[in-house]
């Protein structure tokens, strides 16, 4: 019997992402069909055109973009995918826009597990569903081993700004109340304590969440809210400073009102880090006229994302561009911008 020599056919079923998955050929197609399309589909994406052609409702268009490079990509309370959806949704929502459409660009390191990629895609689809947005266009690129850290995601988003709403970081007025939607530092500490090499264990979960639903309800009862920001990198301290500088007003807050979860406090003490400098991914800082504060607070507290909302201070006529905290002891100190990366310290 003669055995016919078989031409070796290329391997089509991979466990990990290969350079060829990003080369536009058959493997690229198989990546789309196997990992993305089963989980993310809608009338725009399913056309597989190079662009999504969108019908937008009337109103001003809000447009934003953000890149997500978090490490680790799976962390307690979320994934890089959920972060990429919620972060961009929140950037639209804090401008008073109803988030509608997202793009998603993936930069994947060669050798990254396809199963993990799929898990992340599923988490993105679920986050988009919860936030009521559609991922309508996307892109994947594969880079060589070591050229990126597992997976980077960029998302851009489009939303329509509500009529009659004018939210801007330049709108703060003396007398405004400053509301914080909940505990500070959860996301940053969840990331930091789950990183290798720091010998930590904690049950701290990221607060990663879409705020668009809560924000819409807040604007329903108080369309005249002056400003909103989600205090991500740099934490509440950075956000308050940006607001104070942009509006050229002072902000005064009370130390005893700032909510911090017990475990986050513990981790911050251990690492010598100020919770006000730690990133959040599902929190909101709101500046609103004092007369509207109570009803905004009530609405916020009716949402899971705003259950612990509290007034932490007010906008004042003093020290323009500066944030000052009244300590538990009755003294005052400046709340400054954090300087770059938060480093665990021994001293």
């Amino acid at each position: 019997m003669t055995v016919l020599p078989l031409c070796p056919t290329p391997i089509m079923q991979h466990e990990t992402v290969q350079m060829a998955h990003g080369a536009g050929g058959r493997l690229s197609q198989s990546l789309m069909q196997r990992v993305f399309m089963p989980h993310i589909h809608n009338s725009y994406l399913d056309l597989l055109d190079d662009q999504a052609k969108l019908d937008l409702p009337p109103g001003m268009v809000a447009f934003t973009t953000d890149s997500y490079v978090v490490s680790p990509i799976f962390f307690p309370g979320g994934t890089i995918g959920e972060l990429a959806v919620n972060g961009t949704v929140n950037d639209l929502a804090v401008g008073g826009a109803r988030p509608l459409y997202l793009s998603a660009g993936f930069i994947i390191e060669e050798g990254f597990s396809l199963a993990e990629l799929e898990t992340i895609v599923i988490s993105m689809a679920e986050a988009a569903r919860k936030a009521g947005v559609m991922i309508v266009t996307g892109d994947t690129k594969v880079v060589g081993k070591g050229q990126c850290d597992k997976l980077f995601i960029n998302t851009s988003g489009i939303g329509i700004v509500r009529e009659g709403v004018n939210l801007s970081c330049r709108n703060l007025h003396p007398g405004d109340s400053i509301i914080l939607s909940g505990t500070v530092g959860d996301h940053g500490m969840a990331i930091m304590t789950s990183r290798e090499g720091l010998s930590f264990q904690s049950r701290i979960k990221s607060d990663c969440a879409a705020l668009s639903g809560m924000i819409a309800a807040m604007l329903d009862v108080a369309p005249a809210i002056h400003a909103m920001r989600d205090p991500t990198r740099g934490g509440v301290a950075a956000t308050l400073n940006e607001l104070a500088v942009s509006s050229n007003v002072g902000i005064s807050i009370n130390e005893t009102t700032i909510p911090v979860k017990a475990e986050v406090r513990g981790a911050c003490e251990l690492l010598g880090i100020d919770p006000l400098h730690v990133a959040n991914e599902g929190k909101l800082v709101v500046a609103v006229a004092a007369v509207d504060a109570a009803k905004v607070l009530e609405v916020m507290r009716s949402f899971a994302e705003g259950r612990d909302a509290v007034i932490i201070g007010s906008v004042v006529n003093l020290h323009p561009g500066m944030v000052v905290m009244r300590t538990a002891f009755g003294s005052q100190r400046i709340i400054d911008l954090p300087l770059g990366e938060q480093l665990p310290r021994i001293c």
Binding site: F200, E263, G266
Partner: peptide
């Protein structure tokens, strides 16, 4: 050992 500080633990 593992030392617990307010629920966060360190080696």
């Amino acid at each position: 050992g593992i030392v617990d500080v307010n629920g966060s633990k360190t080696r």
